[in-house]
Amino acid sequence: MNGLPDRMEEFLAGFFGNIKFVEKALLGLEGSYVELLTILSLGLLAVLPTIVPERRRQTWRRLNQIFGIVIFIYVVFTCLGVFGMVRNFFRGMNEIGRENIIALYYCSVPVTILVTSMLFGPAFCGWICPTGALQEFAGMLTRKWTLRRKLRGYPFGWGFLLTAGLVGVVFLLWVWRLAVTRTFFVEDSTIYWSEVLVLLLFILAFRMREWDLKLRRIRILSFWIIVLGALAGIRITSPVHLGFAKVYDPASLLSTVVVVVGALTIPNVWCRYLCPWRCAISWAARKSVRFIESDVSKCTKCGKCFEGCNVDAVKDGKINTEECHFCMKCVDACPTNVFTIKDDWRRK
């Protein structure tokens, strides 16, 4: 019995003899296997949306999101930050041909996200992204109220405006106080992004309905700022970074708080208006193999898909692919099966 495997091993060693793969395979950076686990887990997560049973899809999705947060906190912390990811991607690309293992280390997350988006649609946003998950979980607390507001077409109300104003003023005062007392805060552009978010909240309080789609273009701006920042080597810390950085990062905490508070009033506010990755993902997923096909002729205009959607990407059976997070709530909510998830390898 012993002889056969040994001979097989010899045979294999001989067979792959000229390939280094056998001699020395991948070695993680500093003994960690971040990049490998990323590929492994993201690959699994990307496949999951179609494998999970349809009846309990949303439950599976929540589980997936929690799993995503865990993975990102404990495994991929260096690469997570939505901003840092762009910067690290650039850094990783620069290492290609020099320190290949570092290149993999920095590129694995963004490459996996882009590749899965190009093939399996923007499922990262709806199923994995920890920032999105954080906002979604926060939004659940105020879901009743935000849904009512949404169904009434985001009406203008003094109460909401005053509350938002108060929160904004308090926040800005706090930031100002921090900025004058601790110099390191001023340099951190997280503050800048947080303030933008606060300003957005104000604008939204007034003219949400008219300005919604226009404001979403800020994502493109945000993307280019990050890319140019990466090219110029400017350090930008992203929100939701605090849990993942080894160093204690109060600025990041601040922006995380803002994102969560923002998500209480407008579901997924970060994804809608500011996320630079959303910009790249919707570009990559524009012609993805997997997509949600909608048969508008079946639509009864019951409004259930619109109710469920966190990012207002669907209305009366029509999906705005630029915005869609692939969370498939609309697919599950639709009573007349307007939506079907399809794979089209010839899609162009």
């Binding site: 280094k20 290949n100 293992i101 290149a103 590749v115 190009m118």
Partner: peptide, 20 residues
């Protein structure tokens, strides 16, 4: 794998690109 040294990591990365 045959022309470059220590490029297995890159091979994985670019394979994903090829898949997409």
């Amino acid at each position: 794998l045959t022309r470059m040294q220590n490029a297995e990591a890159l091979f994985l990365l670019f394979l994903m690109g090829l898949a997409a």
